[in-house]
Design a protein around this nucleic acid. Sequence first.
DNA 1: ATATAACATCGATAGGCGTCTATCCATGTG
DNA 2: CACATGGATAGACGCCTATCGATGTTATAT
Lengths: 113, 113
Amino acid sequence: MSDKYAENVELFKALSDKNRLMIIDILSCGELCACKILAEFDITQPTLSHHMKILCNCGLVSARKEGKWMYYSLNEKAVRDFTVFLQRVTSSKEDCICKSRNVIKHGDAQCNE
Amino acid sequence: MSDKYAENVELFKALSDKNRLMIIDILSCGELCACKILAEFDITQPTLSHHMKILCNCGLVSARKEGKWMYYSLNEKAVRDFTVFLQRVTSSKEDCICKSRNVIKHGDAQCNE
DNA sequence: ATATAACATCGATAGGCGTCTATCCATGTG
DNA sequence: CACATGGATAGACGCCTATCGATGTTATAT
């Protein structure tokens, strides 16, 4: 409950790679097998495995094994929670950290007193 | 126009740091002087300068100099464009890259044919 | 002019990250 | 059982990055 920042930093990190961003985009249209995803990129299979692990560990992507194939899909709830967090961080609100600390007083942002 | 992914990866990278995420949160309530921001963190002044440069370079934050003080504020349009991009990437759409390439056919995500 | 305060820049360092090759595990097929 | 295939893991390499102290720059104050 305490450190929403540290939690969500993991999600931002997971999306801080062009390949992973494209993987998310592809998965947004539906579940896909790993080999289908791999066919879209100029990376090796271990590299894709590495990226999928990062996407799964942060909760954005869900994995399902069927036989010898791995199926990946977007975790809709994680996506929703993440967008809500981004919305909160980038908009003014009552419980902002700038208000919970009396160091900062908006309205007199000046440094001279 | 072409590579929206690479562009937005820079924004995700910029937000992939707890300190920078908190800076954005603080700035969401209004413009602030650098020294006021610095007072909120246990980092040195050069480190804050480094973070602000990253946030400015990606377009999320605007800087304004007044005398010897630097004032930083959120770039509302950049924030809006970013959230729109995130929304598009994480939701199914007509012009998804998975559709523009006939390699992937959703509905038969299976690997065996 | 000189001192001081607010920032930026430089250079160094320690750790993290994307990628690869090599290898292993699990599953399916003859 | 032997073998092929999908995928994960381990280790290595090069690059990037967060942080610091030291120094430079600019503007205000005396």
